[in-house]
Design a binder for these strands. Structure first.
Lengths: 189, 189
DNA sequence: AGTGTAGGCCAACGGGTGTTGGCAATAACT
DNA sequence: AGTTATTGCCAACACCCGTTGGCCTACACT
């Protein structure tokens, strides 16, 4: 029952194929049969190692964002650092596809949505700073802008957003995040 | 073949049920059988009136945003007006569900994504103003923020965003849109 | 070298899907 | 009133899904 090292290669192949399929097709259209075919093994192997399609999904999106600690930075540059880190994360995600999996699936699958909520509640909320009582609201506003960028750039592929190079996108979006980080929330920034 | 008024009630019931199902479950999990059951008719009627599941979907999301003309407004208030209109649109959408349908499906369905792209290219792009050559980029940045809000508030239901009342949300997001509308794109607004 | 256990495949089950053709009833038109 | 065409339902087709159990194979351990 506790799987040995002998099958590790197979299990990793399943995970990699699952991430690609989930990312490309979303939870519902990604089939275990197709994932197994990509991994070059039998569909029943997926069941043996991950129990069910949901179990496979949970294993495929087991991830941490690894957000930077903003407290050491000059206040004026935190927005830029946060946006750049977020974009770098997504650019690097093209190989594994974990983040795309999460966002795509969270839209149709309630379990994935719950996972995304807790990720942002814990990780983003913690980085923003536990100080002010409107911290959670600020974190959520930042999430709305960053997720909106990810949605338009990596999922919907809106040409104008997808075509921008990372530097220009950081320069455009950083002031917004900077505003959500510190300015009074109803000011005309 | 050209359907008469006699079946109009049925066709409308199908459309209403389809919008709810597509909005709640997304394109893939929404089944014609369930939609037909909600509408109180036989699944084959859906095929007769809309040809296929894709045809039904196309009919269900046939919509225009009806965005306001910003040119007559004082420059400083355009962001607020745009955000408020967008939010009002989504709040009113709870009944029909067209916008939720579109966003939810665009994430997993390529045809829906294309439809969303053209909607924003034509309608939002036109409102922003055909003047500057970076107009499309500005429109796309606005789309990223507004779609991000819709995603977090109406689809993912991030508590901090979903709990805000409309006025507070407008006050928080309007400066961002205002910035994308007019300020130099790399300024720390 | 013999034995147990994990790896892997095959075949199948039960259920749900979009879609189709035919048949009864009912409304509309001449 | 008689004919026609539209409405609606029923039953079925063909396909694909997630999942299961049984059967060889080959490694690992004593």
């Amino acid at each position: 029952m506790p799987f040995t090292q002998r099958s590790e290669e197979t299990r990793n192949a399943i995970l990699a194929a699952a991430r690609r399929r989930f990312a490309d097709d979303g939870y519902e259209r990604a089939t275990i049969r197709a994932i197994a075919a990509d991994a070059g093994i039998d569909p029943s192997m997926v069941m043996r190692y991950y129990g069910s399609k949901e179990g496979l999904f949970a294993a495929a999106v087991d991830v941490v964002l690894g957000l930077p600690d903003l407290r050491g930075l000059p206040a004026g540059r935190r927005g830029e650092v946060l946006v750049r880190h977020f974009l770098t994360l997504w650019e690097g995600d093209r190989a594994s596809g974990v983040l795309t999996v999460l966002l795509r699936s969270a839209v149709t699958n309630e379990a994935a949505a719950e996972r995304m909520r807790t990720i942002f509640a814990t990780q983003v909320g913690a980085v923003i700073g536990p100080a002010a009582d409107d911290g959670p609201t600020r974190a959520a506003l930042i999430a709305s802008q960053l997720l909106g960028v990810a949605l338009c750039r990596y999922v919907l592929r809106l040409p104008e957003i997808a075509a921008l190079d990372a530097d220009a996108l950081v320069a455009s979006v950083a002031p917004t995040v900077q505003h959500y980080l510190g300015d009074p929330l109803d000011s005309a920034g």
